[in-house]
Design a binder for these strands. Structure first.
Lengths: 352, 352
DNA sequence: AGTAGCAGAGAAAGCGTTTACCGATGGGGG
DNA sequence: CCCCCATCGGTAAACGCTTTCTCTGCTACT
């Protein structure tokens, strides 16, 4: 049982020989070169390539051309629906442009993110998209920015998702506005004793949502004292534990807002385990509108983000307007993606 | 506002010059070359690299070495939790080995899958992992196999997930056994009038689950007449519509098994919309144990697959045992991943 | 002290492409 | 009928890296 001979893949050289033309002609025939090539030759080359099962070696092409067709996408956790939806958008948009997407996961770890960026730089991607990174203001963040600057200086383009990180491009999500609108809507439904299950303080997205929500409440004169804000991590389990802590504090609560849906699902679960019927005893709201929240009971009130569009847009932003054009996206990129409050069963009108 | 000068990235050449050594020495210093290099030199080189912000150009390295550090992963839909969990496993295992993962989505379209494989071949990945591909027996499938054979002939390694596709490696899931066990368990709970929301007939995974389930029922003398089997597509919406069709047929049903959880969620939703309480009026079971099903009401009975492990294993299988060793995985790879029936609220013991 | 042997630096030949440049061919204008 | 120019193959030089091979300068052994 010996391993197969493992001949190396056919090269352009082979194709050229097979077709009886020169290397240059073969090359020109196979990629839409600017220069014309005799149709008869071209056909022969294409046929030969076919016959040999030739595929252009993208690496060699990249080294010769000095540019690649790769997009690098960094996410915190690809199994999280928030990120996988964004990834779907990025991949979709990328494949339209003939780009190939490399995904790396950073596990919400700034150090790891930095190292990943460094490693990915070796791939010389055209574009790097960072979703779900922390902004800690730490030296690690400085290094990250340095790395990205260097990346851009050498012809790459970096784009952030949901994080304003000048001078880099970013797809801005109006987290603050969305959360504010949600708070206003909920206040309108009669909720008064509000608690928030917030994310880790160093995740800016989470903080923006918290701020916006507090602002919306304030407009209705509803306070949000610090002890009603529980910082925990961005997972279902974080939501669960945060809720337990909240309940243990015995604070009177008629609404819990979790700054993302994954956590909100944990909230619902914790409430139920504590014998409280979510939506009846205590209202629950989340953020993101991941598919699951439509299917749980009660269906969750949340803020919808068009996540696939966000991913798509990040890519477009980064691959940029056709060079030479007067950048029509330039200001569009600064305009945050609008979001929509979606009221569902988990926050019925409050009995008075 | 002119674009930045965009100098090209530092090359090894630059590093060598900066360190005052030869190209060869620089190369040897930076990658753990077999050959020794004077420690003093090495340090100078490393420092120079640091100073210049040098990162090895992986493309150039690949073309020089003739081998890459890329893994290509093909999934039907990255936003589907089944696939995103697998992807998480693959990425995790890959990054342990210093490999970088490229993800492409094929949208359950055989033609597109074929084209994707072709395109991805240009990247000369070390490994290609195919999850969720169709097996249609069609000419497209033949072409796909041809493409993969060529890929392996030229030194690559292909691995399938949940699909026995000799001679290629695959991580086998015991779909049939898992479904059989589930059926037996459900029969034991007293269910008798069973219907199945099945997947598209050309997806083998779906058919195996259907078969296994029917077999398990048969052991208990429970029939599964063809009209109780509804073929629909592998989405939540497919499950929803399939259930509507089923209900419209007026067949007496006390249990619906959907061949995957995503569809099962659709089943639950359809039942509820039809005024039937899932779990009380009609039992519901799914397959996969995606996170959501634990959180919906009623929590779904399902079959657990360790999806991340599956992904991880696929990668290990493909990167293979250390060359030279006597392939301890060789038979292990043929041993299907075990699965576990998980009974939850959606299938309470049936009243007699 | 002389030589075998070896360590290790450097030169150079690739790896599979692209692309500037060269030169041949053929057509059209004077 | 000749010359110039446009057109289009081919040749060869990159691209950034690895790796083989050559060659120098030691160490170490007899």
């Amino acid at each position: 049982m010996s391993a197969p001979a493992s001949k190396s893949p056919a090269t352009l050289h082979d194709v050229a020989r097979e077709a009886g033309v020169s290397l240059a002609t073969a090359s020109r025939s196979l990629n839409g070169s600017a220069r014309k090539v005799n149709e008869a030759y071209r056909e022969r080359v294409v046929e030969a390539a076919q016959r040999l099962g030739y595929t252009t070696n993208l690496f060699a092409q990249a080294v010769a051309k000095g540019s690649t067709t790769t997009v690098a996408l960094l996410v915190a956790d690809i199994a999280d629906p928030y990120f996988s939806s964004i990834a779907a958008g990025v991949i979709d948009a990328a494949s339209e442009e003939g780009l190939v997407v490399t995904i790396a996961v950073t596990g919400r770890n700034a150090q790891r993110e930095l190292e990943t960026v460094k490693a990915l730089r070796g791939q010389r991607p055209r574009v790097m998209i960072l979703a779900g990174s922390r902004t800690t203001g730490s030296t690690v963040e400085e290094q990250l920015r340095g790395e990205l600057s260097a990346f851009e200086d050498t012809g790459g383009k970096a784009a952030f998702i949901s994080q304003d990180a000048p001078p880099f491009a970013s797809v801005l999500l109006d987290n603050r506005g969305g959360a504010r609108d949600l708070a206003v809507a909920l206040a309108g439904l009669g909720y008064r004793d509000v608690a928030v299950i917030a994310g880790p303080p160093e995740i800016r997205t989470a903080e923006e949502r918290l701020d916006g929500f507090a602002a919306g409440l304030a407009e209705h004169g509803i306070p949000l004292p610090p002890e009603r804000v529980i910082h925990t991590d961005f997972t279902r389990d974080g939501g669960y534990r945060g809720t337990q802590d909240l309940l243990a504090s015995k604070a009177p609560v008629d609404l819990i807002f979790a700054v993302n849906d994954v956590m909100a699902v944990g909230v619902v679960s914790a409430l139920r385990d504590a014998g409280i019927v979510p939506g009846v005893g205590i209202g629950v709201a989340g953020y993101d509108d991941i598919p699951t929240v439509r299917d749980i009971t009660p269906a969750l009130t949340t803020v919808r983000i068009p996540l696939e569009d966000v991913g798509r847009r990040a890519l477009q932003l980064a691959t940029g307007p056709a060079p030479g054009s007067t950048d029509p996206m330039a200001d569009g990129s600064r305009r945050p993606i609008p979001m929509e409050t979606v009221i569902r069963e988990s926050t019925p009108r409050r009995q008075v």
